[in-house]
Design a protein around this nucleic acid. Structure first.
Length: 346
DNA sequence: TAACCGTGGAG
DNA sequence: TCTCCAAGGTT
């Protein structure tokens, strides 16, 4: 087993990132929040969200006490909204079951909602020097290259083996854990990139088997292919004469769970039937495609502008429970899916 | 275990 | 335009 910890720790301290907003603190709340936001999300995307979130929820108690809708509003646009719901539940559990303090071990952290093995390890390493490995996308790339790890990471058994390797590569000194953990992240995010890794500048150059064999492009190996489905849907876009939009909360399960959206219809005929008997102007909008990781959503907004009196809120809510009219200025107060946010602000 | 869950950037 | 993927976790 090569000693990558020593050169990596030295490199991180001299050349790594030190000025990110969630660094320079060992406050588990701040570290935890950053780790959740950074799941499958790049640093540059998270920066603004992180600051706004801390401003509104400065500590775990404030977050726990907030309505879930407020949390989702601040999360809107960041994606993977189950993270926000789990984050909120986690805060409530920390307050209710742990007296407001995060449990101080990676093992115990993993019992909390939204915290898996890698996130738990990152928090424990950064905050308490615990000797536990992380294994995120960046680290998988770094380690499989260093080791020329041939296994297919689509297989559970293989991934388990890489976790074991990650454990064996940890620094001996617990005090080095923060710099080591950060170093792996920094290396994967900067030098050891997917394409065109800058091996000449890499502190692990001398230890890297893939580099020695000129095979960096072969790692990591992963055979699972992404199969993307396609779904077409029609959004009924009701607009009052004063410009207000009719929005309602989405179901607790599925895409954009808990966010606010337009009423969904099967097709244009369905939308047309919904406005039967009302006075106004119908405009079939331009169809656009919104791409998710696993699904292409082909969306047609079907707009209906009331020219006279709209039905009462009670009548509308009978059909769309929880719905309400929102003026353009009020759109910031609710969480909208990214494509709807673009549509309404256009 | 495989499917599901967003969005934006990079090449 | 297209593909890959980013400080993954849950069901």
């Amino acid at each position: 087993m090569p000693d990558i910890a020593t050169p990596l720790v030295a490199w991180q301290r001299q050349h790594g990132r030190h000025a990110l907003p969630w660094q320079g603190t060992r406050d588990p709340y701040r570290v935890w929040l950053s780790e959740i936001m950074l799941q499958q999300t790049q640093v540059s995307t998270v920066l603004g969200y992180y600051e706004r979130f801390l401003q509104r929820f400065p500590d775990v108690a404030a977050l726990a006490a907030a309505p879930q809708d407020d949390v989702l509003t601040l999360w809107a646009g960041l994606g993977y909204y189950s993270r926000a719901r789990h984050l909120h539940r986690c805060a409530q559990q920390v307050v209710a079951q742990h007296g407001g303090a995060f449990p101080r071990s990676a093992q115990a952290l993993q019992d909390l909602p939204g915290i898996g093995r890698s996130t738990a390890a990152a928090i424990a390493a950064f905050c308490w020097d615990e000797r536990v490995p992380i294994l995120d996308g960046n680290v998988k790339r770094v380690l499989t290259r260093v080791l020329a790890f041939e296994g297919d990471l689509a297989e559970t058994r293989v991934e388990r083996a890489l976790w074991a390797q990650a454990q064996d590569l940890l620094p001996t000194q617990a005090a080095d854990m923060p710099a080591y953990t950060q170093g792996l992240m920094d290396l994967g995010a900067t030098l050891c990139s997917q394409r065109q890794p800058r091996c000449a500048d890499c502190p692990l150059h001398a230890h890297c088997r893939a580099r020695a064999e000129d095979r960096t492009a072969e790692f990591p190996r992963k055979t699972r292919k992404l199969k993307r489905s396609r779904v077409a849907l029609t959004w009924l876009w009701l607009r009052r004469a004063d410009g207000a939009h009719w929005l309602l909360p989405r179901p607790a399960r599925g895409v954009w769970a808990g966010l606010w959206s337009l009423p969904e219809c099967a097709d244009a005929a369905d939308a047309q039937a919904a406005v039967q008997g009302w006075t106004g102007t119908a405009t079939p909008g331009e169809t656009f495609t919104h791409v998710l990781t696993h699904r292409d959503m082909v969306i047609t907004p079907w707009q209906f502008r009331f020219t006279g009196e709209a039905p009462s809120v009670e009548q509308l809510q009978q059909r769309w429970p929880g719905g309400r009219w929102l003026a353009p200025a009020e759109l910031d107060a609710v969480g909208l899916p990214a494509p709807l946010s673009r549509l309404l602000r256009r």
